Simulated scan of single mutants.
Amino acid sequence: MAVLPALLAHLRGATNAVLVAPPGAGKTTAVAPALLGEPWCTGEILVLSPRRLAARAAAERMATNAGEPVGQTFGYATRMDTRRSAGTRVTVITEGIFVARIQADPELAGVSAVLFDEVHERSLDGDFGLALAVDAQAGFRPDLRLVAMSATLDGARFAAMMGGAPVIESEGRAHPLTLRHIGRRAEARIEDEVASAVRRALGEEQGGVLVFLPGVAEIERVADRLAGLPDDIALHLLHGSIDPPLQRAAIQAEPDGRRKLVLATSIAETSLTIPGIRIVVDSGLARRPRYDRQAGMTRLVTERASQAAVTQRAGRAARQGPGVA
């Protein structure tokens, strides 16, 4: 990342920063390892990720770059799945794990920095965790470094919340991305339209295809409609309900060199680089938890994906080369 020197220089004399970098710039896996060499960084670095899959993938990527197995210098901690040791210096954790940790230990003893990745997603745990960290910094840990990171962040608003922290921006995208809007018929089922778009993309473009759908049911119905694909195409389903080994298979390179086709929920929206993906097909829909005042409970609602979300989704296509979305 071209802006790393500026970020490191700032954090030597200040405690807060906001980093805005486009998808594929490497902020998730580049910033934390760079901070380890700083004189003020004598403890652990926590990297907050909004999803368990992204947390595991980020830790595994940093460990691979360092030439060591995950769980040594670089580890992760998610619900029901943890890989870390006494020597772990960088731990990627989900937002819920961080909230529980800072509530149990408001001083964050032994922690030198907290990096909030993909803060634009604005989850309850993410916002609450950032507020608690800012409060802990003001009351207990003036030396604690806090960095908010995203590709589509409203930097000024978060900078104000973090005491007027500077916004450090990385300009430009590493690879060109071509955007195409093909639309869909209002009377047609979303599964039929997406399956048609996938077959069109496979026929007109080169490289793997990542498809975003709102939920598991839509993924399974699209998979049914894509039956009979050529043998050189490897179809994967990717959502939070499948086992971690199947999730890893979906985001790793195909061992036999086949073309990858991944049908995913928003679990693949951020912080992931899937080898070989050059095309993104986006349904434009997302299923989000929303509080129902009348029922007094939270329920899942299918709605149009936000502009920030569709920008992140499109960015998956151009992380390793020119892409189409």
Rank of each mutant, 00 (worst) to 15 (best):
R221M: 13
P245I: 06
G215K: 09
K260V: 10
L124E: 05
P214H: 15
S306L: 10
A109S: 13
G183N: 03
I274K: 06
M80S: 08
P39S: 07
A308F: 01
A286G: 05
P230I: 07
L108S: 02
I102A: 01
D143Y: 10
A109V: 14
S85K: 07
D117Q: 11
R122H: 04
I190L: 15
M62F: 14
S123C: 11
A17E: 06
L237N: 05
T73R: 15
T42Y: 12
L238C: 05
A227H: 04
L115Y: 07
A66V: 14
L108E: 00
L36H: 06
A100C: 04
C41M: 15
R221T: 08
S49D: 02
L177G: 11
L263E: 09
R299K: 10
D292V: 01
L146Y: 15
L53P: 07
R248L: 14
L130S: 03
R288P: 00
D292N: 05
T94S: 06
L229P: 08
R319S: 08
A32C: 02
S271N: 11
V301H: 00
A109T: 13
Q312D: 02
I93R: 03
L46N: 07
L8I: 11
L53N: 02
L272G: 08
V310K: 08
A234W: 10
Y291P: 06
I277K: 03
L235Y: 05
Q252L: 11
A217Q: 15
H236Q: 07
F212N: 09
N16Q: 10
V111L: 01
R316P: 06
A55K: 00
L153H: 11
A201G: 01
A159L: 09
V99P: 00
T311C: 03
N65Y: 10
R180E: 15
N16T: 15
I251G: 04
E169R: 13
L48K: 01
V92H: 00
G208T: 14
A25F: 10
R157H: 12
L124K: 03
N16L: 03
L36D: 00
A234C: 06
